[in-house]
Structures are given as structure tokens and as C-alpha cells.
Amino acid sequence: MRRHTDIIGRLGGPNSGSIQGVGMQHIPVASSNLKSIAYDPSKSVLEVLFKSGSVYQYYNVPVSVHEDLLGAESKGQHLAKYIKGKFPYRMILPSS
């Protein structure tokens, strides 16, 4: 079973703050489904690391949507309602 540190180490290094070289700093979140969230405002890319180990990037995401996600009481429900299916996305790493 892969650990969060294994995934970050494999993708960008534990001290790099990046995954796949995008240069985004992940912020740990309190959620039963999400582990951390990162956002690149210059590219409008939202990156989500799930507790399962999978990593997704969502594209053309306005900064306000990222801020709303960070402020949501339930991050998983907010992601499902306002982001999934609304923005193009790509799986960066499958679940462990």
C-alpha cells in the first residue's frame, strides 16, 4: 500500500511542493475523501490528491472555485457538486 509521502516523493519530491513539475504547493485538508489540494492561478489548474492515492488535475478552474472548495464544510461534496463534470480533468496517478 502506497503512503502519501511515497506518492509525493515519486511525483515531485517531498520538499519540492510540486507534483508532475507543475510547481503547485499542496495544502492538506480536513476531509474523509481528499488528502490535499493545490492550485496554480497562472494556469487555472486545480490539483486534488485523494486519500485513495489518486491524483487528478482539473483545468480552467477559476480562483473563486478553488477558494470556495477550500472554504467548504464538506470538501468531497463540494468537489462532486461544483467541480466534477464541470471542468475538464485528467488523472495524474491512479489510486493505490
Rank of each mutant, 00 (worst) to 15 (best):
E73W: 10
M1N: 14
V48T: 03
Y89W: 11
D68F: 07
G23C: 05
I37V: 15
P41C: 05
L79Y: 02
P94Y: 08
G12L: 11
H26A: 02
I7D: 08
P88H: 14
K86R: 14
S32A: 11
V29R: 05
G85R: 00
R10H: 12
P14S: 04
R90E: 12
S16V: 00
M24D: 09
E67L: 10
I7L: 15
S31M: 02
I8C: 06
P14K: 14
V61R: 04
S54P: 03
Y56I: 07
P28I: 01
G53T: 03
V29T: 05
F87A: 01
Y58W: 13
E73L: 09
T5E: 15
N15G: 10
K43V: 04
Y89S: 12
M1E: 15
G13F: 06
N60V: 12
P94W: 07
S95M: 03
R90H: 05
S44D: 07
S64I: 08
H26W: 02
G13L: 06
S18C: 10
D40F: 05
H66V: 00
T5V: 14
V22E: 10
I83E: 13
N33M: 13
L93T: 08
V55P: 00
I37T: 08
K75A: 11
S31V: 01
L93I: 05
I7R: 10
D68K: 13
R10P: 00
I37F: 11
G76N: 10
D68I: 01
R3S: 12
P62C: 12
G12R: 10
G71C: 07
Q77K: 15
S74R: 06
K81C: 10
R2I: 13
P94D: 11
S42E: 05
S96I: 02
S36N: 06
Q77I: 11
P88Y: 12
I7S: 04
V61F: 09
M24G: 10
F50R: 06
